[in-house]
């Protein structure tokens, strides 16, 4: 990062076409004296904070996951190899696999539910509609609200056992314990399945996620050439054909972004589940991590970090795929 290469030093062997391309790409300059110091500071200061507070802790977590640290004094740290990982896959396998399954269910659900519905809403709002902005706000408002507020709304207003809206509308006059019912709706084994209270949480997540997806697709559709749609109408396509074969293929960049956001959000999902979480069967990996690090019976830095590393590794594949995809033919 210390040397800024001058564009004039572009290889003389390069063809003329390549040269102009290079010249366009490389607007670099040979810096001297004060400019050089300022340029270095502009990069170094933000990078220092980002690396110190984001990447150093990440590496530290990987290290802690191989120790038995309880989080008090550094002198208590003992290396224990893969013990924490072994324990997660044996003694805590019930917690872990239920959590991982919930992450997977959340991921599939986000694709089937909010993504499809969000795209559908965007498609409707893109029809040159009066009051489109207004409708957009209706669906987007949940995204702007704090999770503390969203959590309260669902916990009390909707899912309150005795008098919540859901109880009043669907309870047929009796109490319904929406968030506390740990029964499996779909059971794979005795200790693995999709519990009813997790489905209640999924509804709340979908409510918030749909508006986000809608806005992303709406922005993508706005940039589609309107003549494309007109010509497909002239060709006698029906609405579904026009969407499927004309509009949808042009949305590929947005689809990639939505896919990445959905996968990463499904893996990182925390806030809304943390607020609505009941003791069992609604956990996801991020909750298991947090509980082991700070929650009741917590203070197990070693095991908590091992959970975090598993979560990190699951995210990492998608992060690498996305980042390389984005910067591959990068011209920056």
């Amino acid at each position: 990062m210390t040397t800024a290469t001058p564009s004039s030093k572009a290889e003389p062997a390069a063809s003329h076409e390549e040269m102009t391309k290079k010249a366009k790409k490389k607007r670099s300059l040979q810096f001297h004296g004060r400019d050089r110091t300022i340029f270095m500071l502009m990069v170094a200061v933000p990078t220092f904070f980002h690396v110190l507070l984001v990447w150093v802790p990440t590496l530290a977590s990987i290290f802690f996951s191989f120790t038995d640290w309880k989080g008090f004094r550094f002198s208590d740290i003992n290396l224990v190899g893969f013990l924490n990982y072994e324990q997660i896959f044996t003694a805590f396998s019930r917690d872990f696999f239920q959590g991982a399954l919930n992450n997977l269910v959340l991921l599939l659900f986000l694709f089937i539910g909010p993504t499809v519905f969000g795209m559908f809403l965007a498609y409707l709002l893109d029809k040159n509609l009066r009051g489109s902005r207004f409708y957009q706000s209706l669906f987007y408002t949940p995204v702007v609200l704090s999770l503390a507020v969203v959590g309260f709304m669902w916990q009390s207003v909707i899912y309150s056992t005795e008098n919540g809206l859901a109880t009043q509308l669907f309870g047929a006059g009796t109490d319904v314990n929406w968030l506390g019912n740990q029964e499996y709706l779909i059971a794979f084994t005795d200790n693995l399945g999709i519990s009813k209270n997790f489905i209640a949480i999924l509804v709340a997540i979908a409510w918030r996620h749909t508006g986000y997806i809608m806005v992303l697709y709406l922005a993508g559709m706005k940039s589609v050439d309107p003549s494309l749609r007109e010509s497909s109408a002239l060709d006698g396509c029906n609405e579904w054909q026009a969407f499927r074969h004309v509009l949808f293929p042009t949305l590929k960049p947005i689809n990639v972004v939505v896919a990445v956001i959905t996968v990463i959000e499904a893996l990182r999902a925390f806030d809304i589940i943390f607020v609505l979480n009941t003791p069992r069967r609604t956990q996801v990996l991020s909750i298991l991590t947090t509980n082991n690090l700070l929650g009741e019976g917590g203070g197990n830095v070693g095991r908590g970090s091992a959970y975090a590393v598993i979560l990190f590794l699951l995210c990492l594949g998608f992060v690498i795929w996305y980042v390389t995809n984005h910067y591959r033919e990068s011209d920056v």
């Binding site: 990447w55 990440t58 977590s61 975090a308 979560l311 990190f312």
Partner: peptide, 15 residues
């Protein structure tokens, strides 16, 4: 870019 996509849980304890 990659730092932005990390799960906050892997940062929190060392932080």
């Amino acid at each position: 870019t990659a730092g932005n996509l990390l799960p906050a849980q892997i940062i929190i304890q060392p932080l």
